[in-house]
Design a binder for these strands. Structure first.
Lengths: 192, 192
DNA sequence: TCCATTGTCTAGCGGTGCTAGGGTCGAATC
DNA sequence: GATTCGACCCTAGCACCGCTAGACAATGGA
């Protein structure tokens, strides 16, 4: 019995190692550098071992995305918890969101840009993703204004933030005036 | 002399063929399917011919992006030209933008997501890209409101639209309520 | 007619994600 | 304690990728 348990523990540990290594490598050198060979070498196993844990590279990206979504939800809630005033909470949320994206670009991509084989905006969407959206909704729903469905408002505000993140990181927007752009979004979109 | 001219014409024609074929293939099957082998086969030349026109795949994407940016500027201007009222023009612009993205997803990606080796938000940004931004600015600058720099407003509104496009197309947002989201953006962000 | 240049192709390099098949090693059984 | 059996992991290889070197043919000019 105990032998099997030990093996299962080791397996779980190795799976965590794979995800952590993939994430680390992606943050260091970008997702293009995360090849199955390099990843296998870093964890000191052969390539096929990866496929005994994940169906393929896509699922590894998906695992990183789920981990990241959980962290993002925590970060957003932490940033808004101690703030008074709905509008101020939204400003704090926006800053926290952009900060998370800036600090974890590869994870952000895994969650919002890459194909990790995950279902989004769906009933069988993984819990971490639903919860990340819920974290946004908690603060953003308060400033939706009359006649605007909180979910729809959250989606729209979120899309605006996402647009800023991706265009800036892709070099399409100069990074200097990010704060002013965020201020504009909060000032105009949020209604209390 | 004339021989050289004829050859140059043929070369230019073939270059257009490469770009058009790459674009077509990308729209049909996605950019991942645009491999140098497949592209070469479609234009009925061998792979190395591609490299006598472009430095690599990146530059081909860049060429598609420039072509697309020109068309997008035309589309945006056409949609706003005959509309009365600044606010209504912005609504028309938003619809035209989303429509362009929906009709030309691969081209949209080439312009705004992929690496085509182009300079953005820079002095030596290619003219088509500058002009596409200018087309947005023409209508959006009118509703920036007092104390908000038109360029900054345009960037922000554009980012919001871009966020809607990318999140929707990546399956992160359900496509059903796009119109309501756009209405929200126009209603709240635009000031006249 | 010969040469030189231009243009194009074949073949191949090192890389990718992924998998088939063999071998090894450890746990359970007699 | 010996033996069998099964789980596990690795080597090797597939088809494909972007890109390029070098051979070869065709074409215009001397």
């Amino acid at each position: 019995m105990s032998v099997q348990e030990r093996k299962e523990r080791e397996r779980a540990g190795r799976e965590r190692l794979i995800v952590a290594t993939a994430r680390e490598l992606a943050e260091q050198q970008g997702w293009d550098a995360v090849t199955t060979r390099r990843l296998a070498e870093r964890i000191e196993y052969s390539q096929p071992v990866l496929y005994s844990h994940f169906r393929g590279k896509r699922e590894i990206i998906g695992a990183v995305a789920l981990q990241g979504a959980t962290e993002m939800a925590v970060a957003v809630r932490a940033a808004t918890a101690a703030v008074d005033g709905a509008r101020e909470r939204v400003a704090a949320l926006a800053r926290a969101y952009l900060d998370f994206a800036a600090r974890n670009p590869a994870v952000y991509d895994a969650i919002f840009q890459l194909d990790g084989g995950l279902a989004y905006a769906h009933e069988d969407t993984p819990a971490p993703l639903k919860d990340a959206f819920a974290a946004l909704l908690e603060s953003l729903g308060e400033v939706a204004g009359d006649g605007v469905e909180p979910g729809l408002f959250t989606e729209t505000f979120w899309a605006a933030l996402h647009g800023l993140v991706t265009l800036t990181r892709a070099g399409r927007l100069p990074p200097e005036n990010t704060e002013q752009r965020v201020k504009l979004l909060v000032d105009r979109l949020a209604v209390d």
